[in-house]
């Protein structure tokens, strides 16, 4: 599903590469944690998958497509198959829950009837039934993150990228978020989650890829966060 082949990413004006000779294979339906300290290259990895950045060297395949050969106008089509969740939720403050989720479908031109049918289903899936009309600032952090996950998942993507989704949320609420991610993963969606949260990684017992200074230092199935942290 995601295939990194000797990928190096060097940002302009920086001496050390953000990623260096990275080889990672993520299979369809896998759940993988990307761990490592800040600046270890986790976010760069996610940006490369979305083709927001281009690798300096190496090849990247996502959903069977070689990103180097993907023309610019096809990039949006790639992104429709990838959902994204962030630490800061990125909801639209002037739209209610329903419209925040529907927005993701409106802007790719889905018919209104389809939107009316699908959006409530996904809102139920993330556990926000009955809160369609709430505005984002009326919700707790955990609930806002659920809305963000509903928006990321509403178009049934093949891959869900989560960049520290529990970073702004207390540990108790984080468990609920992880349950939703697990539920999404069980529908067959590949989930890649970058995180700092040792407790979560340890409790989930999923594959763990550890990055340090842009290099893969550990790739372990059913792993833990690691002793050093």
């Amino acid at each position: 599903m995601i295939h990194f082949d000797n990928v190096t990413k060097l940002y302009p004006n920086q001496s050390r590469p953000a990623l260096e000779n990275v080889n990672i294979d993520v299979e369809k339906g896998e759940f993988i944690f990307l761990v490592g300290p800040s600046g270890s290259g986790k976010s760069t990895f996610l940006r490369l998958v979305l083709k927001e950045e281009r690798p300096t060297e190496g090849r990247i395949h996502v959903a069977g497509k070689d990103l180097a050969r993907l023309t610019n106008w096809r990039v949006p089509l790639l992104r429709r198959r990838i959902g994204c969740v962030f630490q800061d939720f990125r909801l639209l403050p002037n739209k209610n829950i329903y419209h925040n989720v529907a927005f993701a479908l409106e802007v790719i031109g889905k018919p209104r009837r389809f939107i009316r049918k699908v959006v409530p289903e996904v809102i139920d899936l993330v556990g926000l039934e009955g809160k369609h009309d709430r505005m984002p600032d009326e919700l707790s952090g955990g609930e806002q993150q659920r809305v963000a996950m509903a928006r990321a998942f509403v178009n049934r993507p093949m891959i869900l990228l989560a960049d520290e989704p529990t970073g702004n949320i207390d540990p108790a609420t984080s468990i609920g978020i992880m349950k939703v991610l697990d539920r999404i993963n069980r529908t067959g969606t590949t989930v890649v989650m970058a995180t700092h949260d040792a407790a979560i990684v340890d409790s989930m017992r999923k594959r763990v890829v550890e990055l340090e200074f842009g290099k893969v230092v550990r790739d372990q199935s059913r792993g833990v966060y690691g002793q050093a942290y």
Partner: peptide, 17 residues
């Protein structure tokens, strides 16, 4: 910019943005 960044993220075409 918030709307447009989300539009890009969920794969809206350039034209649509």
């Amino acid at each position: 910019r918030r709307e447009t960044s989300i539009m890009r993220l969920v794969g809206a075409s350039n034209f649509y943005i």
